[in-house]
Simulated scan of single mutants.
Amino acid sequence: MFASLFVLLYVGHLLADYPFQTDHQAAHKADCGRAGWSANLRHAGTHIATCGAALAAGAGLLADLTVSLPAAALALVWIGATHAFIDRRWPVAAWMRLARQQGWAQHGGAAHVDQTAHILALVLAALLLAAA
């Protein structure tokens, strides 16, 4: 069940991060102030919606997949909150400084670290759901 849950959440993540993320959200989700937080939270909300839809579709279509509603709600809040935090960009930059990866950061590495952090959050959400 973990694998099914993870795949569903990952597909929801990919949809929210790529085809459903607006240019405005991508450009401003890390900005300071109200406009930045607004873009960031709208983008995180898209993640909650797409991952929720993926879980609902999976629960409806896959006979062996049962999802606890309280666990699903907690997992979706976790996904939205961690996505909003990671997408402020300073956590990834801080990690890359700590890991002494500034050169890689200047050559596109931050996008890979960003996606790895998001996938880790999805793995934890899928583990929570599988254990519930």
Rank of each mutant, 00 (worst) to 15 (best):
C32P: 10
T50P: 02
L5Y: 02
L9E: 00
L127K: 09
G12C: 07
F20H: 07
L74H: 05
H28P: 02
A56T: 10
A132F: 00
W90M: 10
L41H: 08
Q115F: 12
A59N: 03
R89V: 12
A125L: 09
L8Q: 04
G36Y: 06
L76C: 05
W90I: 08
P19A: 05
S38I: 05
T50F: 03
A3H: 11
A30P: 03
G36Q: 04
I119A: 13
L15I: 13
F85Q: 06
A26G: 03
A111P: 06
T46G: 13
L76R: 02
A56E: 12
A131Q: 14
L62M: 11
P70S: 06
A111S: 15
G33A: 12
V77N: 08
L129H: 01
L8S: 01
P70G: 01
A54Y: 04
F85S: 07
G80N: 07
G45H: 02
D114W: 03
R97S: 12
A84W: 06
H107S: 15
A75W: 02
A72T: 05
L74N: 05
Q106A: 15
F6K: 09
G80A: 08
G33C: 09
A110T: 12
M96V: 07
L127Q: 11
A49G: 01
A30E: 06
G45C: 06
T82P: 00
Q101M: 15
A59R: 01
Q106F: 14
V7C: 09
H28G: 05
S38C: 13
T46A: 13
V113S: 07
F6Y: 15
H107K: 14
L120F: 07
C32V: 13
S68R: 08
A121G: 05
R89Q: 15
F2D: 04
A73E: 00
W37L: 15
R88L: 09
A110E: 14
V67T: 00
T22G: 03
H47Y: 03
M96T: 07
T116F: 15
Q106K: 15
R42Y: 11
H47A: 00
C51N: 09
Q115M: 13
H43S: 04
V11S: 01
L15C: 11
L120N: 00
G60P: 07
W78A: 04
L98E: 12
A81G: 03
F2Y: 12
A105C: 11
H13D: 02
A54G: 05
L5T: 03
A84F: 06
A57G: 10
G33V: 10
G60S: 02
A26H: 03
S4V: 10
L74S: 11
W37C: 13
A35W: 10
W95V: 10
A110G: 14
T50R: 03
A59D: 05
P70T: 08
I48G: 01
L15Q: 07
A39M: 04
T22I: 05
W78Y: 08
T50L: 14
N40A: 11
S4R: 11
Q101T: 14
H47V: 01
W90T: 09
L69Q: 13
D64F: 08
T50N: 04
Y10G: 01
T66S: 11
S4E: 12
C32E: 12
H118I: 04
A73Q: 06
H28F: 09
N40K: 09
L55Y: 04
H47K: 00
A94L: 11
